[in-house]
Simulated scan of single mutants.
Amino acid sequence: MTQHHDQHHDAAPAPAVNVNALTPVETEQAVETAGVAKTRLTGRRAFVSAMFAGAFVGFGALFFLIVTCDDAMTWGPKRFVGGLAFCMGLVLVLTCGAELFTGNSLMVSDLAARKVTWRQMLRNWLFVWLGNFAGALLLVALVALAGTMDLNGGAVGDLAVATAASKVTPGWGTLFVRGILCNILVCLAVRIGFAARSVADKVLGILLPIAGFVAMGFEHCVANMFFLPMGLVSAMMGYGADAAGAAALDVPAILYNLSAATLGNILGGSLFVALAYWYLNAKKPGSALGWGRR
């Protein structure tokens, strides 16, 4: 009997590996756990991690400029291919690890669940926004020195100017709403990243939401931290002289766009994704919004 029991014990099946994505409730728990961890980063570490994210998204934006400066492509396919190229930025953020301001809108879930305070969240947002900008500006400087804007006979530099000009000429309200729409898709993509169990899942899952917001012409404040300074530097280097609205490109115009895009991104990600999914998946029946009170 003992021998039989031991053999039976030795032959116990190995635990099953679950390859399904996390459920929405499990994803919400993962989002909130990550949000609490973000508040524990020192300001310096949050800033450096955010510099990586700013540069990663900048690389995606540069990839977008490279593939869409080809005049032989028609408008729709060009937007789609450019959007797919831009996805490289968020792929790097989610798989290599970095603090991205737009994705950190999801920390509002933690605020509603009373897991973080307003002060902790806003402190993280400030360091991460500034770090994203610093990383993007560093990449702009390196790209300018690398002569990348001269590719395709200067068409990349011309497109950099035209793209930046197109982002500073619309009305502030228009840019704000584009920012809302953008970060709904970005934060949904980040939630897909949390739900995924492998790198392949993360990459495949985020491709369409991110390519979609780019193709639709929405405004992402961190991408614009690269697009706008790159356009201004390119104009100063002599590119894009014929681009519509190029004369409007200056530092106040960059801040004008970033103010609208940033506030729109915060509203889109926090209200329409973070709070909505917290309400659906984490909120206990009858509980009121906590808003960070302990």
Rank of each mutant, 00 (worst) to 15 (best):
residue 1 M to E: 05
residue 1 M to T: 14
residue 2 T to M: 10
residue 3 Q to Y: 11
residue 3 Q to N: 08
residue 3 Q to L: 07
residue 6 D to I: 12
residue 7 Q to I: 12
residue 12 A to M: 11
residue 12 A to S: 12
residue 13 P to V: 02
residue 15 P to A: 13
residue 18 N to I: 13
residue 20 N to L: 07
residue 21 A to F: 12
residue 21 A to K: 12
residue 24 P to D: 14
residue 27 T to M: 11
residue 29 Q to F: 00
residue 32 E to W: 11
residue 33 T to E: 00
residue 35 G to Q: 07
residue 35 G to I: 05
residue 36 V to F: 09
residue 39 T to M: 14
residue 44 R to T: 13
residue 47 F to L: 10
residue 50 A to L: 12
residue 57 V to H: 09
residue 58 G to S: 10
residue 62 L to F: 08
residue 66 I to R: 00
residue 70 D to V: 11
residue 74 T to G: 10
residue 75 W to D: 13
residue 80 F to L: 10
residue 81 V to E: 12
residue 82 G to K: 05
residue 82 G to H: 10
residue 87 C to E: 12
residue 87 C to N: 10
residue 89 G to P: 12
residue 90 L to R: 03
residue 91 V to K: 11
residue 91 V to N: 12
residue 92 L to F: 02
residue 93 V to Y: 07
residue 99 E to Y: 00
residue 100 L to V: 08
residue 101 F to T: 08
residue 104 N to M: 12
residue 107 M to G: 04
residue 109 S to C: 13
residue 112 A to W: 02
residue 112 A to C: 07
residue 114 R to I: 03
residue 117 T to D: 05
residue 124 N to G: 02
residue 128 V to M: 00
residue 129 W to Q: 00
residue 132 N to F: 03
residue 135 G to K: 07
residue 136 A to Y: 04
residue 138 L to D: 02
residue 140 V to A: 09
residue 140 V to H: 10
residue 140 V to D: 10
residue 146 A to N: 13
residue 149 M to F: 14
residue 150 D to C: 01
residue 151 L to P: 00
residue 155 A to T: 09
residue 159 L to T: 12
residue 161 V to A: 12
residue 162 A to M: 01
residue 166 S to N: 15
residue 167 K to P: 04
residue 173 G to V: 04
residue 174 T to F: 06
residue 174 T to A: 07
residue 186 V to Q: 15
residue 186 V to K: 14
residue 190 V to N: 03
residue 190 V to G: 00
residue 191 R to H: 01
residue 192 I to C: 04
residue 192 I to H: 02
residue 194 F to N: 15
residue 195 A to S: 09
residue 197 R to S: 10
residue 197 R to N: 13
residue 201 D to G: 15
residue 202 K to D: 13
residue 208 L to R: 13
residue 209 P to K: 06
residue 210 I to C: 15
residue 211 A to T: 15
residue 214 V to W: 10
residue 214 V to C: 14
residue 215 A to M: 08
residue 218 F to H: 00
residue 224 N to Y: 09
residue 226 F to T: 00
residue 230 M to G: 06
residue 232 L to D: 03
residue 233 V to E: 05
residue 234 S to T: 06
residue 238 G to F: 14
residue 243 A to V: 13
residue 245 G to Y: 06
residue 248 A to N: 02
residue 253 A to Q: 00
residue 255 L to R: 04
residue 256 Y to R: 01
residue 259 S to P: 01
residue 259 S to C: 08
residue 269 G to K: 01
residue 273 V to G: 01
residue 276 A to K: 06
residue 282 A to T: 15
residue 282 A to D: 15
residue 284 K to N: 08
residue 286 G to L: 14
residue 294 R to T: 14
